[in-house]
């Protein structure tokens, strides 16, 4: 479904991605783990075309999207919930969700709205509240809910559990699994929370300073000594 081949991405002179290869097959949950600054967010953003890859190829559903402008990529069946709760603060929760539905058929809107409210019931009560006044956890949920409104075939999630209470984290991971199982949405998940992510994912990739160093099934990576030492020891 998504094939990333030898992708190099630069910020000015800094090479943030140094030839990344990665594949996500239809229906999979694939997780990408790595230390701070490894380039995980950069990879998700490069798939979306901001910044564009300097070299290499990104293919989505058989179509080369490497050089497409971002707004076209995001209308071709990919959605991203980026890191850091990027909700629109001076719009209501409902308007935020309407923004998420931009790439979707307007006829589906109310159906999609019910679907995301089923995943996140708290949001339903707060439809008219301004985004900026929602709690951190609510904003995080809204970011994910908004990315679902376009019925993406591929969903890119960047640290959805960041800064949430442990109970909410478990809930978020449960919802990610449900999204995948109920709607067949393919998911590429970036996470600091390697333990939860690897348990959830079918497959995983480990990224170190801009390159993939290790890949395998979730269970294999969980059992891997290097992964345990670098990302799992010290509790989860």
């Amino acid at each position: 479904m998504l094939v990333v081949e030898g992708v190099h991405t630069f910020y000015g002179h800094i090479e943030a991605l140094k030839g990344v290869d990665l594949e996500v097959k239809p229906g999979e949950i694939v997780t990408l783990i790595g230390a701070n600054g490894a380039g995980k967010s950069t990879l998700l953003m490069t798939v979306c075309g901001t910044p564009q890859a300097q070299s290499g190829r990104i293919v989505f559903d058989g179509q080369d999207i490497t050089r497409l402008p971002t707004h076209q990529i995001m209308r071709s069946g990919i959605a991203q919930a980026p890191e850091g709760r990027r909700i629109f603060p001076r719009m209501t929760l409902l308007e935020n969700l309407q923004m998420g539905a931009l790439a979707a058929d307007p006829a589906h809107f109310s159906e999609d709205l019910e679907r995301v409210f089923a995943f996140f019931p708290i949001l339903k009560e707060r439809q008219t509240q301004r985004g900026g006044t929602l709690s951190g956890g609510e904003q995080q949920m809204l970011t994910i809910a908004r990315s679902l409104m376009s019925r993406p075939r591929l969903l890119l999630l960047d640290e959805p559990s960041l800064g949430l209470a442990p109970m909410i984290v478990r809930q978020i991971f449960k919802i990610i699994r449900e999204i995948n199982e109920r709607t067949g949405t393919t998911i590429l998940l970036v996470e600091q929370n390697a333990y939860h992510a690897l348990r959830l994912a079918h497959r995983g990739y480990v990224m170190v300073t801009g390159a993939i160093t290790l890949t395998g099934s979730g269970a294999e990576l969980l059992a891997n000594r290097e992964v345990r030492a670098a990302y799992l020891e010290g509790g989860h």
Partner: peptide, 24 residues
Amino acid sequence: TPLGRQQRACEQDMKMARLLGVNV
């Protein structure tokens, strides 16, 4: 209107608006 909403979205977070498919 949707156009007005897109304008406000660009005003508040242009990069995010683009990530939602807005032609900035």
